[in-house]
Lab assay of single mutants.
Amino acid sequence: NQESVVAAVLIPINTALTVGMMTTRVVSPTGIPAEDIPRLISMQVNQVVPMGTTLMPDMVKGYAP
């Protein structure tokens, strides 16, 4: 099972992602793959992401799977 990126904290809208904001977990449905965390650093979320929420591609500005 592939791990997906999950919010480790509440991430406010338009916040640039940092390593500490993200964790990984096997979830269903799957979100952004864990191995993409290095690509996500400094990208901004386009909505509020509650802690424990799986990051989906459409939540991150400029992210393309």
Score class of each variant (00 low, 15 high):
residue 7 A to V: 03
residue 35 E to I: 09
residue 56 M to G: 09
residue 57 P to V: 09
residue 11 I to D: 00
residue 24 T to L: 08
residue 59 M to S: 03
residue 45 V to Y: 01
residue 36 D to C: 05
residue 39 R to H: 14
residue 37 I to A: 10
residue 26 V to N: 14
residue 50 P to Y: 09
residue 14 N to R: 13
residue 8 A to Q: 10
residue 41 I to E: 14
residue 2 Q to I: 14
residue 47 Q to L: 11
residue 52 G to M: 04
residue 13 I to N: 10
residue 1 N to G: 11
residue 40 L to S: 00
residue 10 L to A: 12
residue 4 S to D: 00
residue 33 P to E: 03
residue 48 V to N: 15
residue 27 V to S: 13
residue 43 M to A: 14
residue 12 P to D: 11
residue 47 Q to Y: 11
residue 56 M to D: 04
residue 16 A to C: 15
residue 57 P to F: 11
residue 59 M to P: 01
residue 48 V to F: 13
residue 46 N to G: 08
residue 33 P to V: 12
residue 47 Q to K: 15
residue 35 E to F: 06
residue 21 M to Y: 10
residue 51 M to G: 09
residue 49 V to M: 04
residue 21 M to E: 02
residue 40 L to D: 00
residue 46 N to L: 08
residue 18 T to I: 07
residue 22 M to I: 04
residue 3 E to M: 08
residue 44 Q to C: 04
residue 9 V to P: 00
residue 54 T to P: 07
residue 23 T to V: 12
residue 64 A to G: 12
residue 42 S to P: 03
residue 44 Q to L: 15
residue 57 P to Y: 10
residue 63 Y to Q: 10
residue 38 P to K: 08
residue 53 T to H: 08
residue 21 M to D: 04
residue 41 I to N: 05
residue 12 P to S: 09
residue 54 T to C: 04
residue 5 V to H: 00
residue 42 S to G: 12
residue 35 E to R: 05
residue 14 N to H: 15
residue 65 P to A: 10
residue 53 T to M: 11
residue 4 S to Q: 02
residue 19 V to P: 11
residue 4 S to N: 02
residue 50 P to K: 05
residue 59 M to N: 03
residue 63 Y to E: 03
residue 44 Q to E: 10
residue 9 V to S: 13
residue 40 L to M: 15
residue 52 G to H: 11
residue 46 N to A: 10
residue 35 E to L: 11
residue 49 V to S: 01
residue 45 V to F: 01
residue 32 I to C: 03
residue 41 I to V: 05
residue 16 A to D: 07
residue 64 A to N: 12
residue 56 M to P: 01
residue 19 V to F: 13
residue 48 V to Y: 09
residue 62 G to Y: 10
residue 27 V to E: 05
residue 65 P to R: 05
residue 14 N to V: 02
residue 43 M to L: 10
residue 29 P to H: 06
residue 37 I to R: 14
residue 18 T to E: 08
residue 19 V to G: 11
residue 4 S to H: 02
residue 29 P to R: 05
residue 64 A to D: 11
residue 22 M to V: 13
residue 43 M to V: 10
residue 49 V to W: 01
residue 33 P to F: 12
residue 42 S to M: 08
residue 21 M to G: 02
residue 59 M to W: 04
residue 26 V to K: 04
residue 22 M to K: 01
residue 37 I to S: 06
residue 4 S to M: 02
residue 34 A to H: 11
residue 30 T to P: 14
residue 30 T to D: 08
residue 35 E to Q: 10
residue 50 P to M: 07
residue 14 N to D: 13
residue 10 L to G: 10
residue 15 T to N: 14
residue 32 I to D: 00
residue 15 T to V: 14
residue 22 M to A: 01
residue 28 S to M: 13
residue 29 P to S: 12
residue 19 V to T: 09
residue 11 I to R: 00
residue 46 N to F: 07
residue 18 T to N: 10
residue 7 A to R: 00
residue 31 G to M: 03
residue 11 I to N: 00
residue 61 K to N: 12
residue 63 Y to C: 03
residue 24 T to M: 09
residue 39 R to V: 03
residue 1 N to L: 06
residue 1 N to H: 04
residue 52 G to E: 13
residue 52 G to T: 05
residue 4 S to C: 03
residue 18 T to F: 08
residue 58 D to S: 15
residue 49 V to L: 14
residue 60 V to L: 12
residue 8 A to G: 05
residue 64 A to V: 13
residue 39 R to F: 06
residue 44 Q to A: 15
residue 29 P to N: 05
residue 55 L to V: 14
residue 29 P to Q: 04
